[in-house]
């Protein structure tokens, strides 16, 4: 029996490991799913970070001043005077006394629907202050200006809210990092397991390579490259799926994404791009460490 004519000049070295080992659908699926989850985590963290930045920015550019009338001054007159004083402070872009109905709205939850009788009560008035985004006036500056004009007022620069938002954003960010590391660890463990199985299944190949003079590193490289390639393919599939889901969420969510609380921008979808490379690196490291340890024991 003879084969088709073989031309040595056109010969290309074949892989030392059987090609069919690199097409393990279960391994591709598991790594692909892990990459999909990792990409979703990354998108979630980015969106949460953007939401937190937006809220922080909005809060930083605003302050609320509660003005209490003193002496014979009416609450409305005190609020108007406070607004006028605040408008002249450096770092304030706008100051506007809110109508008394707004103040009533704020205390309605505690006093009920008694607006008709509120005229007799010394309900404080509110002044909404818009701050210069680049160089906002501090709460202390605003308080000093008001005090200088004999106004009894409390300045709320939303610092408590800002602190909470920053804290929440930090928690989300670090949770994302931990989830990401867990997923990377799981992917590494899966590859380590696959490498162990691959070495056991191809012990004959490893033995021949060893006896023919291959170094441990050469043999480990075979498994490293193989699993890096598998992980890169699976990573690309996972990233594509996560990116696709991101597109859907962005499209059905309107201008601000799926919800105003978790806005996804088009540029955020670029975050899935490094996934195949990262997956390949994780797989290569896991395969290399596992293969070298096992080969030494052979």
């Amino acid at each position: 029996m003879t084969d088709a004519p073989f031309d040595p000049a056109r010969w290309r070295p074949a892989s030392f490991l059987p090609d069919e080992d690199a097409r393990d659908p279960a391994l591709l699926f598991v790594i692909g799913v892990l990459c999909f989850l990792a990409c979703l985590t990354a998108l979630g963290v980015i969106a949460a970070d953007r939401a937190a930045s937006g809220w922080s920015s909005q809060l930083r550019s605003e302050a609320t001043v509660i003005v209490r009338a003193q002496g014979g001054e009416t609450p409305d007159a005190a609020a108007a005077r406070a607004a006028e004083v605040l408008a002249g402070v450096a770092g304030v872009s706008e100051a506007r006394a809110l109508e008394k109905e707004k103040a009533y709205e704020l205390i309605r939850p505690w006093l009920g629907d008694v607006a008709a009788d509120l005229d007799d009560l010394p309900v404080p008035r509110l002044v909404a202050v818009g701050l210069d985004r680049r160089k906002p006036a501090t709460a202390a500056t605003l308080s000093a200006a008001l005090k200088g004009q004999g106004l009894d007022a409390v300045v709320d620069d939303h610092s408590v809210w800002l602190k909470d938002i920053r804290h929440a954003a930090g928690v989300v960010r670090w949770t994302g990092v931990v989830i990401f590391l867990l997923i990377a660890g799981a992917a590494g463990a899966v590859v380590a397991y696959a490498t162990r199985a691959g070495l056991a299944a191809r012990r004959d190949v490893v033995e021949v390579l060893h006896l023919t003079g291959a170094e441990d590193a050469q043999i480990a490289n075979l498994f490293e490259l193989r699993f890096a390639r598998v992980a890169a393919i699976a990573g690309a599939a996972g990233a594509l799926a996560a990116g696709g889901l991101g597109v859907v969420l962005r499209l059905i969510g309107g201008g601000d994404g799926i919800t105003p609380a978790l806005p996804i921008a088009w540029i955020d979808l670029l975050a899935v791009l490094p996934c195949p490379v990262l997956a390949a690196i994780v797989a290569a490291v896991a395969a290399r460490l596992t293969a070298r340890r096992l080969i030494r024991q052979l």
Binding site: R12, P13, F16, P18, V208, L209, L211, T212
Partner: peptide
């Protein structure tokens, strides 16, 4: 014999030379 069943006769024969780092 310890031949590698997934490699052609040519690849099996070239194995020691490839491992030693020679170019095809």
């Amino acid at each position: 014999l310890l031949l590698l069943d997934h490699l052609s006769a040519f690849d099996n024969t070239a194995l020691p030379l490839r491992i030693a780092g020679h170019k095809p």
